[in-house]
Design a protein around this nucleic acid. Structure first.
Lengths: 354, 354
DNA sequence: ACAGCCGTAGCAAGCGCTTTCTATGCGGTA
DNA sequence: TACCGCATAGAAAGCGCTTGCTACGGCTGT
């Protein structure tokens, strides 16, 4: 049947223990022996039995990466970057230590799925878990998550938040890389205000998400500071992070408040929908209405006109999260690092026609 | 320490065997007993030890999905769709059977990584493997893949090709869902020819990939059929499937052959770069130069003008691949199904100015 | 020359689960 | 009443690996 450690041992005329030690490289083995074993492994095409190994060693080489939507490059970029650090193939290490398997899990933004995936990863005794994406701000869910994460940490699983603030009560068990959503959003709106915009529509993300809230807060901070804070509710529309939501919300916004001269979208994808809506209303960008996004996804520069947005270093953050998950990097002091967001001014924003 | 089956058994006053049977639901257990066990599981917050279970049962609930680039929505969409069928959370089944963990692995298009990931999955005794993305047409690599896949199949791993033709010599072990890249490309070019284009540039994908070759062949078939096949080499430029490649290649193309009135790109992302290049040369789309893509990714409709492209049912294909991987659907007769590609005519193509 | 070490290798006891085989108790049938 | 079969539960043998401990030479130190 399938080749086992014992088969290799027999062929190399050593004990199974020795083969295991050669394979794991965590115990001195004479080089002549090692060579003999390695040759046997090769000749027999031996592949380690992962479950058996995980069972005996009480650790596995799985690392889970939870994302809200794998089809969204926002997550794809972070996940890919994390995976490149986590290894599997190509981390050069060849053997020992590296060689982890990154598991990308799609929660679809659903809290239940998030928890279920954590259970699944707990079941697999995952070595680490990377959580990305804005968290739901529901106390019950947060409590459940905290409990689950505590249990995971307890079992030796490393926990990393990537691009999201740490959950309350998890600072002891997790490292966090949080994006400066608030600051980025503030600077974006300040830019618009500096251009002369006074009536600014906001197409927000889904309710009860930290990301949504922080970006909205940053926006309102800027508005308030400029003395423009008024009936914000009337120029804010919530919706999911997708294009059609941006389209619909913008249409609604323009209908409701024809005086709006700029639309800030929750992210670039939504902004694309907003652009389409503005255009379909027969308005020009940026002459009639300025549009801005968030994230600076690769396609944003190709929008016409190119999208003014806030650049989030997704790749860098993902890579760093991967390193934290692997224990290759020490966690930031206090467990939380805030990652800067950079304003990218492009063609989709301009001074309003007067 | 961590709760084991035995702990649950003790608490429910039954044997470990019974607990296992309740959890797996594959053996009759009196409902009163079952209930007692379930309660104990709950009270103790018991989580099955995956590795132990996999070891004993000689099967695991991991399903691998190999993709070339997880940051590319082309793959993200397929992977997400596959994952939604593969389950993990949310497949409704709650227990038994479902509950597989989909592992998305990023090969970066590298043949070595592809093989290494397969080994890693083999090591985990994966239940199934879904391979997406154009395959490298290198005989040595193909042979190595065939051997590896045969071994996997041998160990009971189900194998599914999604959006790519089956490897030679794997028809016996794998099911395949291949896109009609050739037909789609042909129809796209026919459309351009029908509009009156005669000199058509082609920005191809990377060399030695099935996808690249099939799309190129479809294009040339159409050209030949229209009697336009000439020095094709001079209007074809190869490059990776990314935006900057499309940009550079198109600039090169326009420089080399100013008479070109249309540019066909290997995919939508490349087409976006092509659009930017055309524009930066001071040319209008589609008045001066028509541009077309392939795949119909979500952002394509938002390009300005909207991109003429070929729609590939990525979601549907991914979902079907997931079902095949789960054994929920019977493989197509002959092991291979070809999935149609639909021409989407939009604003980026028009009759050439005469 | 002998004790003590160091460098290697083997033994064997699990890791926590699944599953075959066996045991038990019950109702139904002759 | 005695026997058989069915439904249900338990005992126990692994699954293939890791690792603590033991064993065994050959060196070194005195």
């Amino acid at each position: 049947m399938t080749v086992t450690l014992a088969d290799v041992a027999a062929r190399a005329r050593v004990s199974p223990a020795t083969v295991s030690r050669v394979l794991n490289g965590n115990y001195p083995v004479a080089s002549s022996t090692r060579e003999r074993v390695l040759r046997a492994v090769d000749e027999l095409d031996y592949v380690l039995n992962g479950p058996a190994s995980s069972l005996a060693a009480a650790t596995s080489d799985l690392v889970g990466i939870l994302v809200n939507d794998i089809a969204d490059p926002f997550f794809g970029i972070m996940a890919g970057a994390a995976q490149s650090e986590i290894g599997g193939p190509g981390d050069g290490s060849g053997r020992a230590g590296g060689e982890k398997l990154a598991v990308v899990c799609n929660t679809g933004g659903s809290p239940e799925r998030e928890l279920t995936y954590l259970t699944l990863l707990q079941r697999q005794r995952a070595a680490a878990v990377v959580l990305t994406g804005g968290a739901l701000e529901d106390p019950a869910h947060q409590a459940a998550m905290a409990v689950k994460l505590a249990r995971l940490a307890d079992a030796g699983t490393r926990i990393v938040f990537c691009g999201r603030p740490p959950l309350p009560d998890t600072d002891a068990v997790a490292a966090a890389l949080a994006f400066d959503n608030r600051g980025g959003a503030r600077r974006l709106t300040e830019h618009l205000i500096a251009l002369g915009h006074r009536r600014i529509g906001y197409v927000a993300g889904p309710l009860e998400r930290t990301t949504t809230r922080h970006r909205l807060e940053g926006h309102r901070e800027a508005m308030k500071a400029a003395g423009l804070y008024g009936d914000e509710e009337s120029v804010t529309v919530h919706g999911p992070y997708d294009r059609s939501s941006g389209y619909d919300a913008t249409l609604e916004l323009l209908r409701r408040e024809p005086g709006v001269t700029a639309v800030v979208a929750a992210n670039d994808t939504v902004a694309l929908g907003a652009c389409a809506a503005v255009r379909d209303r027969g308005l020009r960008i940026p002459e009639d209405v300025s549009v801005a996004g968030f994230d600076d996804l690769p396609f944003s520069v190709d929008a016409v006109p190119a999208l003014t947005t806030v650049r989030l270093p997704l790749f860098e953050a993902g890579a760093r999260a991967g390193r934290l998950a692997m224990g290759k990097e020490t966690p930031p002091p206090g467990g939380v690092a805030t990652i800067g967001a950079e304003l990218m001014v492009r063609g989709s924003t301009a001074a309003p026609a007067r």
